[in-house]
């Protein structure tokens, strides 16, 4: 009978009643799964370790305060906490990008020149000139919408007011303009990438 595994619900109840070993059992039972889940999202051992720790601190605080509602779903609850903390981590990182120091040091990972070099600038100019020539082959109504949207940066509402058509028609013309432009590019066998 001793081999019967005690359920999570029982362990949680015991822990809430002050049995510290119950927490140890819960962590040992689930730490592999929770840690793997966190690592599969962040792919960084140290970050995963931090999030794992924060997850269980939240678990401990909630259980000790008696705020946990036992519904027989301990693991999904912990996974949800971990998931939310992973999201928090990525939100924080977005505001403050981390310097990636894996492998050899590369000065260009901290310094970057956002300006295009001469070669890519020339290629970019060529592509833009080619596109300007190609769009001349579009039907007049499509060319008009495309020019207003891309080159004059007008909204579809403004385009519809200026051209006297509905927004849906303007959207449709833009869609067909792009489809036709792709066809023209294929016809001329052009490769417009740098």
């Amino acid at each position: 009978m001793n081999n019967v595994e005690i359920t999570d619900a029982v362990l949680v109840r015991e822990y809430m009643q002050g049995n510290e070993t119950a927490l140890s059992k819960l962590i040992n039972r689930h730490h592999h799964r929770i840690y793997s889940f966190i690592f599969s999202k962040v792919f960084d051992r140290d970050v995963a370790e931090d999030i794992f720790q924060d997850t269980f601190i939240k678990v401990i605080n909630t259980l000790k305060r008696g705020k946990y509602n036992e519904e027989g779903k301990f693991l999904p609850w912990v996974m949800r906490i971990a998931h939310n903390l992973v999201i928090d981590h990525f939100r924080r990182n977005k505001r403050m990008p981390k310097f990636d120091n894996s492998g050899d040091f590369n000065i260009f990972s901290v310094l970057s020149d956002s300006d295009l070099n001469v070669e890519t600038q020339i290629i970019k100019d060529q592509i833009e000139n080619d596109v300007k020539e190609l769009i001349k082959e579009l039907p007049e109504d499509q060319l008009e919408v495309l020019t207003m949207r891309i080159y004059k940066d007008m909204s579809f509402k403004e385009i519809s007011e200026r051209t006297g058509v509905s927004i849906n028609t303007a959207l449709g013309r833009m869609r067909y303009a792009l489809i036709n432009l792709r066809k023209i590019i294929e016809k001329h066998k052009l490769v417009l990438t740098n």
Partner: peptide
């Protein structure tokens, strides 16, 4: 993959030390 023993130990110690 698994959490470091130190982390697990820290959590257990934290739990023991926490009084509400």
């Amino acid at each position: 993959l698994e959490a470091r023993k130190e982390t697990v130990q820290f959590l257990l110690n934290y739990s023991k030390a926490l009084r509400v």
